[in-house]
Simulated scan of single mutants.
Amino acid sequence: MGEDTADIYEVRAITDGTVKDGFWKSLPILTDFKQPWNSGFIQKTAFKACHDKDWLYLNYRVEDSSVHVQKISGHKLEVVHGDRVEIFFKTDALLKTYYCLEVDPDGRILDYTAAFYRKFDYEWSWPEGHLSAKAGRTDSGYWVELKVSLKSLQDLDILKNGAIGAGIYRGDCRNLGHFPVNESEFVWITWVDPMTEEPDFHVPSSFGRLKLLGL
Rank of each mutant, 00 (worst) to 15 (best):
D21P: 10
H81L: 15
D200L: 00
G141S: 09
S65L: 15
I168W: 07
D111M: 02
S205R: 04
E102M: 15
G214T: 12
M195F: 06
K147D: 05
V203K: 04
R174H: 13
G208T: 03
I72Q: 05
V62D: 08
F89I: 09
L30V: 07
L159H: 07
A46R: 08
E145T: 15
S205N: 04
R209W: 01
P105Y: 08
D172L: 15
L77W: 12
K25I: 11
D139S: 12
S65H: 15
K119I: 15
A93L: 09
H130K: 15
H130G: 14
K160W: 07
A13H: 08
G40F: 14
H130D: 14
L27R: 09
I109S: 06
S26H: 08
L215P: 02
L56F: 00
T97H: 10
P36W: 04
N38M: 04
L30S: 03
T196Y: 04
D7P: 09
V80D: 03
G82Q: 05
L56R: 12
D16I: 13
G129D: 01
F207R: 07
G167D: 04
S206I: 02
V203W: 01
G17T: 07
G136S: 09
S125C: 09
Y98H: 08
V148M: 09
T45C: 08
S73A: 11
P204T: 02
D155S: 10
A93D: 10
V62Y: 01
H202N: 06
K44I: 10
R209K: 13
E128N: 14
W37M: 05
S39F: 14
F201Y: 14
D92G: 03
P180N: 02
E63Q: 10
T18A: 10
M1W: 00
R137L: 14
A163Y: 06
V67I: 09
E86G: 03
Y112E: 08
Q43W: 07
D106P: 11
F186D: 07
A135L: 05
F33Q: 06
L215Y: 14
M195V: 07
L153G: 03
C173T: 09
E78N: 11
G165M: 04
E63Y: 11
G22V: 07
A114C: 13
L212V: 09
D83I: 13
A6D: 12
S26C: 08
K48I: 12
L30H: 13
E63H: 14
F186A: 11
H130T: 12
V79D: 01
D121T: 01
D200S: 02
Q70D: 06
L131W: 00
W143I: 10
F89Q: 12
Y117V: 00
I72D: 00
D83M: 05
S206Q: 06
G40V: 13
Q70W: 02
A115N: 08
C173A: 04
V181Y: 03
A114L: 14
E10C: 13
D32A: 15
G17F: 01
G167H: 04
W124P: 04
K76Y: 07
M195E: 10
N59F: 10
N182I: 15
G40L: 07
P199K: 15
F186M: 06
C173I: 13
T5D: 12
E86V: 11
E102N: 08
A133H: 03
